[in-house]
């Protein structure tokens, strides 16, 4: 259903494309129309396949003995994605180092590291190493953010 909705939205957007072309030649919407047709046909095909293949057993997922573990793992993934999103939101403003160190530490904890000293050393050490390597070694303009101003305030 999600894919069918995507095909319909894509088709609707294609109708809004400007038709600018010479006579008897394909214009800008030509290829998107072919795509729309393919997407619609395939998503309808998948839907039909799903309905056809449905048996009485299919609807209820079997309870597994390690259901609790699975739920924990799923939550861990959700937390990681949440941390990723938060990291990307604060990265431009805070700067690479201030944003990366807590993000790295959070991921280390999510990946099972329980020794806090290791978390601190790993997150600070690798973040700083990556910053120095890419900012100064390869001239990638990683954002500095508020750290230089902060340091200037602390160390006059």
């Amino acid at each position: 259903m999600v894919l069918l909705a995507f095909a319909l939205v894509y088709g609707a957007l294609t109708t809004q494309l400007p038709i600018r072309s010479l006579p008897d030649t394909p214009g800008p919407p030509f290829f998107p129309w072919i795509n729309t047709a393919i997407l619609l046909a395939l998503s309808l095909g998948l839907l039909a396949q799903g309905i056809w293949a449905k048996t009485p057993d299919d609807g209820s997922p079997e309870a597994t003995p390690d259901g609790a573990t699975e739920a924990t793992e799923r939550w861990r993934a959700v937390w990681a994605l949440g941390a990723f999103l938060a990291y990307l939101l604060v990265l431009p403003g805070l700067g690479f180092l201030l944003a990366t160190i807590p993000f790295f530490a959070a991921l280390m904890v999510l990946f099972g590291e329980k020794r806090w000293l290791w978390v601190a050393i790993g997150s600070i050490g690798i973040s700083v190493a990556l910053y120095v390597l890419f900012r100064h070694g390869f001239d990638v303009f990683l954002p500095r953010g508020v750290l230089p101003d902060l340091l200037a305030t602390i160390i006059p």
Partner: peptide, 11 residues
């Protein structure tokens, strides 16, 4: 340890 490897991959 994956705890070091995977966060590095993410960054």
């Amino acid at each position: 340890p994956r705890a070091l490897l995977m966060p590095t991959v993410a960054v």
